[in-house]
Design a binder for these strands. Sequence first.
DNA 1: CATGAATGAGCATTCATTCAT
DNA 2: AATGAATGAATGCTCATTCAT
Lengths: 211, 211, 211, 211
Amino acid sequence: MKAPQRREREIARTREDIVEAASRAFVQIGVHDATMQDIAAEAGYTAASLYTYFRSKQEIVEAVLDQLTTEFLQVFEQPLPGNLTFPQRFEILLVRHLELIEKRRALMLTFHSAEAESGHCPGDSHGQSFHQNFERRILGLADWFKKNAKPDEIGGHDPELVARLLVGMVFGLLHGWVAKDQGSLADRAPLVRDFFFHGVSGNSKAGAKKK
Amino acid sequence: MKAPQRREREIARTREDIVEAASRAFVQIGVHDATMQDIAAEAGYTAASLYTYFRSKQEIVEAVLDQLTTEFLQVFEQPLPGNLTFPQRFEILLVRHLELIEKRRALMLTFHSAEAESGHCPGDSHGQSFHQNFERRILGLADWFKKNAKPDEIGGHDPELVARLLVGMVFGLLHGWVAKDQGSLADRAPLVRDFFFHGVSGNSKAGAKKK
Amino acid sequence: MKAPQRREREIARTREDIVEAASRAFVQIGVHDATMQDIAAEAGYTAASLYTYFRSKQEIVEAVLDQLTTEFLQVFEQPLPGNLTFPQRFEILLVRHLELIEKRRALMLTFHSAEAESGHCPGDSHGQSFHQNFERRILGLADWFKKNAKPDEIGGHDPELVARLLVGMVFGLLHGWVAKDQGSLADRAPLVRDFFFHGVSGNSKAGAKKK
Amino acid sequence: MKAPQRREREIARTREDIVEAASRAFVQIGVHDATMQDIAAEAGYTAASLYTYFRSKQEIVEAVLDQLTTEFLQVFEQPLPGNLTFPQRFEILLVRHLELIEKRRALMLTFHSAEAESGHCPGDSHGQSFHQNFERRILGLADWFKKNAKPDEIGGHDPELVARLLVGMVFGLLHGWVAKDQGSLADRAPLVRDFFFHGVSGNSKAGAKKK
DNA sequence: CATGAATGAGCATTCATTCAT
DNA sequence: AATGAATGAATGCTCATTCAT
């Protein structure tokens, strides 16, 4: 009776192991250049074995992407202390968000909008996966806005739009961060928060010059 | 005497044709999946002929990327009417920027941060190309800020950082725009401008514009 | 327990099969002109499969060469009846040597000094392989002389030099033999022996043997 | 009237230049690996131009081979002082022969029996060329024997056979010489002469030990 | 005559995937 | 369940050769 469950657990566990291994391989070798052998070696299996757990390499890629997106969605669903103002809640979320990016930066950059892999012809799969996962992340954040901000707390804007702009900004930040590797990304949270709420003009106390 | 010049022109012209053809092929088929034959067919040549103008497929990819980046830099260097306030100049630039993105959206999405292609190991080339071109675009915009805005007009922030955030936002916008194909991207310029200058809070009149 | 050994045997066996097949292909089509497909077809595999056993075509070429050289060295190491004079032992060796050449004539001619394949620039591999194998054969024969002949039985000459001249003569013979296909090569052994020991002058009975 | 002759001379001259250039290219790069571009560059032309003088690369290869063989035949046809014994004439010939080999050693090794290039199937061309040129050289030497030696001066043997053995020995010598680069090849003439006339046993004064 | 440009025909090699053991 | 072995399908790149200029 419990055997099948145990099996399932076992299988799920192995799948996770493979996904983790694939993540590492993708980061080091690149999504496209990593071969099934590379992934298998990283996971401690042979290439043939991977097919017991995934139907194709594409399925592994999608699982890795899905895993990454899921981590983001979890951040957005994590409970926040109730007695906080919206900007406070926002900052906490932002920090968590940036921390996750920091932790997964290599993988993110590897995938980032890697819709480039294949074309956008109907029927293609790669590109769609990347795009869809990016969108899921945005929609997740949009949901968070809906739940955590009164409409006028985000200027009456469409939450999805706001989420899109925010994710974009963070993306831009990530890009520069990797290039320069300057301290923790999460440290930038206040800056992004201010920019998010007041734009370049900043609010009252403007002056915080960066290098 | 003029012959060599004519030759050079001819060659440059052909290279451009090939770059254009490659762009189309990349968009339709994907950077990686497009074969030399695909590119050649699109350009009206045979695969072997391409090697008269480019040393390798990689060189073509880089030429396409470079061409795209160059177009952006040209936008940033285009002269603006002198008697305008910074926000006005900003909006004009933004519109031009968005128009270019609109025109090249397919190609942009194909490449965007396509550093995913290969890994980030030292010596890899693909990823570097993508990354570098993204950075060139940001630095170009940062330069524009330096030339067109007084420090306090961008809140005393590092121009590069500001550029990074802006390009990021635009990237986020592009992503959603492609997914939904809702009107012209350039129409969003005022929105981005407001967000850029005042954040979500908007300014005085918090016009509740839903999509 | 025995499994790994059996595997190894199996692999070694397959490698040998492929080497044999490659030999045939090289003879019929030429070392350079024979494609991996040709070799594979001859071996009953597909081209891709060959890469399970050899890293590259070059490695197959070298294996074929090595196999051929090994056969020669085995001839030189084969034991000889002890109670024979040096000339007698020499003749036996010569016969065996010629028989091997006869058996492998096609392959030999295909390879013979095929150092022509590539240039002699440092780092080239083809040419080196051919040359080295030729030299190994000569050195093997030189060793035989050292073990089987007292110095004055080879006129006090350097065994390596003597070996070189002998192998050269045999090579010349092989060349003519193939061109004319006149009886067994081994039948020429006495002639070569006489020439080897006494030169054209022949010994006592200068038997005027025309072809 | 003279124009056509001048043209012919011009053409013949250019052909020779190309053949020389090809020889150099073959030596450095290898017969097979040298491309038409390589040969052309060496000759100061473009690849296309070579086709004005030769119908194909194969024809160039054959011209180079032919040129080499012709040089050998010229040595065999060069007049010798009349009042000399056969061994004396032989030695002179041998020295000239070895000198030519020395001069052309690189090219010789490049081509040497490079029949390996292609297979021996009927209709193939490469292999035949190499083989045929080797044979021409042997037959040329055989002719020399016929003209310069009374039958019993070569032990009553078939001149062709004797020539074959001699060319073989020289080939063996060349092989080792290249490998070790020990002094002039022509210095070995006495040694080869003695071996040719008396075999290893040497004649009266046996002892000349080599290193 | 010389050549720049174009090309067809190839070819070694890679890799995701399958399947018998 | 794990895998060694086999393979079909691709693909970037080379090169001898042709031909218009």
